[in-house]
Simulated scan of single mutants.
Amino acid sequence: MGKPLKNPPTYLINSVDHALRIAAMLQLEGELTVSEVAERLGVARSTAHRLLAMLVYRDFAVQDERRLYRAGPILELAAHSPSAASRLRAAALPHLHRLVGVLDESANLTVRTGDTVRFIASVECSQTLRVGSREGMVFPAHHTTAGLLLLAELTDEELEAVYPAERYADRPAERLTARPDLDRLRTELARVRRKGFALNQGRSERGVVAVGVPVRAPDGTALAGLSVSMPSGRYDKHRLPSLVDTLSRVAGAIEADLAR
């Protein structure tokens, strides 16, 4: 017996439907112009432009120097390994909740694709002053705790490939979009490799401190970064060894579940 056809929902929201169709086109077909999107959807160019602008804002799309739109970091991550990210998230979530229960600080699991990282799981603590959920958000890899952990796994040649100078030539020279100083970054990554953890004090967000360790596959490959974040006023450097030890034990528990 054949699979039944999909029926549209009773209350079809056209703008949402259009945005989802554009996301699918970008992921499956590649680069598109505003005019092509407008023609495919049967909408005005101004409508197509607004929809694309929202997808760019949410990292589902990016616009290059030729004014063409292509799949953004979130769609690239989904295309790269949707099932692996889903399994990783499912395995980690119970442990993230336990980690938050022990430390009473917010916890995150983050993966890297190219020069960006995406938070695939986030659990907030119960304290009034806390770091909010980052789930689904995308940041430059070299500005985040997990990004440093995962970049530290790369060789010098692989790091150069992640940050080719030509990719950044036309980007605004702002802190979060500029190409990192690779000599300085290599020094920082060497320190991360040596210590086995990353400490982020206001690097990605002022007033926030994060500590993280890698989560590894059975073959030793780093799959993700596990981190805990807190307001800087609550961070005590004397607790750092204890935080790293707790994170390492939780990472080990996640790795054991993944191995099973």
Rank of each mutant, 00 (worst) to 15 (best):
E65V: 15
V37A: 08
L148V: 01
D170T: 13
L103D: 00
S81Y: 06
R70I: 02
P164F: 01
E188P: 00
V111I: 14
S133L: 12
L185Q: 09
R21Q: 10
Q27T: 13
S232T: 10
A78T: 09
G147Y: 11
K195V: 13
F60K: 05
V62A: 14
P140H: 03
L88S: 07
N200K: 10
M1V: 15
E31R: 15
P8E: 14
L189E: 07
P218W: 04
V117I: 11
V228D: 10
V102K: 01
D181L: 04
L103K: 04
L96T: 13
L99G: 02
R184S: 08
S204W: 15
R206D: 11
R21C: 08
L176P: 02
P241M: 08
A38K: 00
M137N: 05
A78D: 07
R87W: 07
V16L: 13
L159H: 00
E39N: 01
T33Q: 12
P9S: 15
H238W: 08
S126C: 03
P82E: 09
T144L: 11
P73T: 14
T187V: 13
G30A: 15
K6S: 11
D104Y: 03
N200Y: 06
S106L: 08
S204M: 15
F139K: 00
V228A: 13
L247V: 14
L75I: 09
D64F: 08
P180I: 15
R70F: 09
S248C: 02
P82M: 06
I120V: 15
V250H: 06
H143S: 07
K3A: 14
D257M: 03
E36I: 02
D219K: 05
D115F: 06
L88Q: 07
Y235K: 08
A19L: 01
R203A: 10
R216I: 11
E105S: 04
Q63F: 00
Y69V: 03
Q27P: 00
L148R: 04
R98E: 12
D170R: 11
S126M: 03
L150M: 14
A24Q: 11
R98T: 12
T128Y: 05
L109S: 04
V56T: 12
E36P: 00
S106Q: 06
L68Q: 10
S35M: 02
L68M: 11
L12V: 12
D219V: 04
A92N: 14
L51N: 07
S86T: 05
A146N: 09
S122L: 13
R193E: 08
V250R: 02
L96Y: 13
D236K: 06
P241K: 08
A259W: 02
D104E: 14
Y11G: 00
V162K: 02
D17P: 01
I120Y: 12
R67Q: 07
T33K: 11
T246Q: 08
L96V: 13
V215S: 07
V208D: 02
A146H: 08
E158A: 06
P172A: 12
S81K: 09
V209K: 06
R175P: 03
S229G: 14
G30Q: 15
S81N: 14
P82N: 08
R58I: 10
K6Q: 10
A107W: 02
E158Y: 01
L109D: 06
E158F: 00
D64W: 14
T110Y: 07
R239P: 00
M25G: 03
D104A: 12
L77S: 14
S126W: 04
L5A: 08
N7E: 14
A79L: 15
A217N: 10
L149N: 01
